[in-house]
Design a binder for these strands. Structure first.
Lengths: 228, 228
DNA sequence: AACTCAGTTTATCGATCGATCACCAGAGAT
DNA sequence: ATCTCTGGTGATCGATCGATAAACTGAGTT
């Protein structure tokens, strides 16, 4: 072993891809990696997942941060492609059925390990896109649900929902969301029948909304609150 | 400037602390740091927060991981010091009042940026302590609440709650928890009156539980579910 | 057969990370 | 005044990080 053996370096069969394919493969695998390791996941580990070397990343993205932004875009925008608004607003079907179907579709889209973990990691970073998403949920989902509920209860559907109504909807929505967190982040045992969980949650939400609507018609402000 | 000036290196006034004080100061500041930066936060940044040098950390902790474990212990065990069970189980007071008070105390303890962020970060790491905490919530809080609810509704309080009951309680609990996440993690606007939010959430949960209890006495299994 | 050019690799840089070691400093005991 | 014990510092190591520069490779064009 005193001679520098010219081993010819059997290079792993270099798999060439088109630029667009390679780029999207980077984003896909980066989503997987960052979902597991957080955004601190290394560029070398990412390259390894693709079976390429690390500097190749920088032919497609100026920096790791740009790659991360692409991951955000993909993760946040992907589930939005399904048309939600229609399901909620189609008044030819009963409200209860619409809500059930909407939340089954919505949770089918976001209840998976990848989406939830990326969402939580990005939330902890306090990025604008996360605030944008929360605002979107409020405007496109909760406000719409409340409007339909008011319509269904024979109330005026004008203007914005009250802060208390909105909070009610948030607690309901958050309760369902937390089911996904428990199952896919904490990996805790949950009620297997997701549709049943949604149905039960809807039962109590709708009952609660009716109760609130009734007391709101009686008095101007419902003094339900019990002193702590 | 051609001579090596012996500037005498005015060393920052070395603030000596007792071993126990310094150690606990490390844990406290580490909690702050890790809450903001995640557990990837650097040991040098931590030392800087104490106004000491980085190697000093290793006189008190064998490794960064041991420090992290200490942070876990402190964060997870601190809010447990308040006696919860008593508030929930004191049947001399109305159930509604007990639940309201319990959740006000509980959320006072955990609804702050530090606790919630450490909790989420540790949850994403999938550590045992996180599973332990979730199990604790289930056994010490939700199961107890359900037992009191059953007692209040004149039902049998034997044995474990059904999976569906438990899920109902989880959705309720998760809805309240998500209020804290929205406020302190997403920093989104929330209904300012936390007690009001708890009161409203309790209203719909209790109404929902009664409904469920009624249908459970009628039929053996409530076929409420609407096909999706 | 020689040329071209886009996809990929090798080698390496500077910064930062957790961790180790030898040494320093100062309050209390003798 | 000296010794001792302990909290604290300075210097530095090896590993790993994101990023850059230059060289290589091979299918398509001429």
């Amino acid at each position: 072993m005193n001679r520098k053996t010219p081993v010819k370096r059997v290079r792993a069969k270099q798999r060439r891809l088109s630029a667009v394919d390679r780029r999207s493969e980077f984003v896909t695998k980066a989503t997987e990696l960052f979902a597991e390791e957080g955004f601190g996941g290394g560029t070398r580990a990412l390259a390894h997942k693709l079976g390429v070397t690390q500097p190749l990343l920088y032919r497609y993205f100026p920096s790791k941060d740009d790659l991360i932004k692409e991951v955000y875009r993909k993760v946040y925008l992907e589930p939005l492609e399904i048309g939600w608004e229609k399901v909620l607003s189609d008044r030819s079907r009963p409200l209860r059925v619409r809500l059930q179907e909407f939340y089954e579709i919505y949770t089918d889209a976001i209840f998976n390990r990848r989406w939830l973990r990326i969402y939580l990691y990005s939330g902890l970073k306090g990025l604008d896109i996360n605030r944008w998403y929360v605002g979107m949920v409020k405007d496109k989902i909760l406000t719409r649900i409340l409007r339909e509920c008011r319509h269904d209860a024979g109330l005026a559907t004008q203007g914005r929902p009250s802060a208390e109504e909105l909070e009610l909807a948030w607690v309901f929505h958050g309760g369902i969301f937390y089911y996904g967190v428990r199952k896919y982040i904490y990996e805790a045992p949950v009620l297997e029948d997701k549709a049943q969980m949604i149905s039960d949650a809807l039962d109590i939400f709708l009952a609660g909304f009716e109760r609130m609507a009734e007391s709101a018609t009686d008095r101007r402000r419902a003094p339900i609150k019990v002193a702590g």
